[in-house]
Design a protein around this nucleic acid. Sequence first.
RNA 1: UGUCCUAUGGUGUAAUGGUAACACUGCAGAUUUUGAUUCUGCCUUUCUAGGUUCGAAUCCUAGUAGGACAACCA
Length: 551
Amino acid sequence: MADEKSLNFLEEIIENDLKAGKYQSISTRFPPEPNGYLHLGHAKSIVLNFGLALKYGGKTNLRFDDTNPVTEETEYVESIKGDVKWLGFEWANEFYASDYFDQLYDFAVNLINKGLAYVDDSTSEEIAAQKGTPTIPGTNNIYRNRSVQENLQLFADMKAGKYPDGSKVLRAKINMSHINMLMRDPVIYRIKHAHHHRTGDTWCVYPMYDFAHGQSDSIEKITHSICTLEFVPHRELYDWCIENLEIYPSKQYEFARLNMTYTMMSKRKLLQLVNDKHVNGWDDPRMPTLSGVRRRGYTPEAIRDFCDRIGVAKRENLIDISLLEFCVREHLNKKADRRMVVFDPLKVVITNYPEGKTEVLSGENNPEDHTSVRPLPFGRELYIEQDDFMEVPPKKYFRLSPGQMVRLKSAYIIKCEGVVKDSSGKVTELHCTYIPESKSGSDVSGINVKGVIHWVSIADALPIEVRLYDRLFVTEDLNAIEDDFTNHLNPESLTVKTVYAEPELKNSKEGEHFQFLRMGYFCKDPDSTPTNLVFNRTATLRDMWAKEMKK
RNA sequence: UGUCCUAUGGUGUAAUGGUAACACUGCAGAUUUUGAUUCUGCCUUUCUAGGUUCGAAUCCUAGUAGGACAACCA
């Protein structure tokens, strides 16, 4: 009980706030914009926001930041809700920034009345030019001096739809020579005659992020508004709005976003991969989207564990994707049932096994649980993996070779007695003998063999489709590249094969996880039909022998 | 030639002025009816220079490096 885990900087802030009596309880929010699918970077934010509230007895809202009707769609709303639930979290309230459009509009009017906002007729180019640069102050324009009365009328007319898109904006009146560019009279409302996924055609003026996010936090009485580092410069404006509107003072805190090796984490670029058909949709198992990794076979437990392990801090990071793989293997090792599937078949005939005889052996579903078993049909003709036989074996090879013995997993020890080749010299068939006393579970043969291989009975083999995934990109750090990121796609990120499975796999369910013995973790894909079962490779197993062979 | 953020093994994250540690990766070994799992061991660390202090990864100053900031995006 006393294992005191050290606190991350946000937990420290919260504990101090709580200790100081600043809050009775905390509230956080997860604020996605419904313009794309959630990815692992969002998972970090979700686990953080919901995790903090859970840990300190607070609540977390799901709030869609839907202030830009042009890019936002209901399809995304639904996928986001599904992903958050799948990850295992429940939000206290489902809110939308668009729920607050009336209040936000009133806030803007309030600012105008205080002389803190004005309508600007400049084009976006003019506004950009007047803004100056980080080292050169901006300049005031003539619109800045409009009267409160005029601004009120103009803003009302904007709302009433009297002006076309882009012709006018509402700006906060702060300071055009402010050292922080975001404080140089930021645009807070713009005209968009666009259909909104929730408010329809009610509005033609929409608030900007900086005039919506903090106010939404405030309306919901969010105590700790946690976002990523690129919003650090926005904090000053966030606080300015709250102060001048005299509303509940939510506080913004920033952490470093997740970057992962060989992984693209930009929503915009993921959208491009989908649109340009580099992948088969948002839920392609090669995608770092939550729908993608779910289909790939990653479990919510593994992803939450991953998010816990990567920690939270303010420095840029590049997480090794092998940590994610470690997390998923660790969970699936405990959870997944074992099955035997031969990928590259080599026929084996057991010459001393009576023709026509069959028997049903028993295989453990998981080595950590001896009580759960499955039936395993055995016969005279089997498939084994081509890699599990070598006519001329290297040192330390302890699989099958002429005259050598191996154990067929959950079955018998066999000995290779003969090799059949075709005209080109390729090995097409092995003749082996089996040792009847070596039956798994009741072995009285006294023989010890080092090698254990998987197999399937040819008569019972079930052809299935496997989709073998490799990393989508060949470049480790995609943030560091200068050229088009699609140049870095891995052309071999997907390999499809038909392989031979033990018949028990017929009884599998969609989304069910398995370990195909010695081959990796797999998950049944929704593309499966009764006659064509499809399995996605979630992750390979660690393979010391493959490493040995590379040397 | 500005402001802000950041700097600890290969990668992450701790150490909250008092012996630099944990995980992943990598390497080596033990066990194993999965060359899996499990177990053991090893490699490798405080950006630089000053200062404060009995004592600095930690505080201060300067430098260096990386990142962010000039969307009617979020």
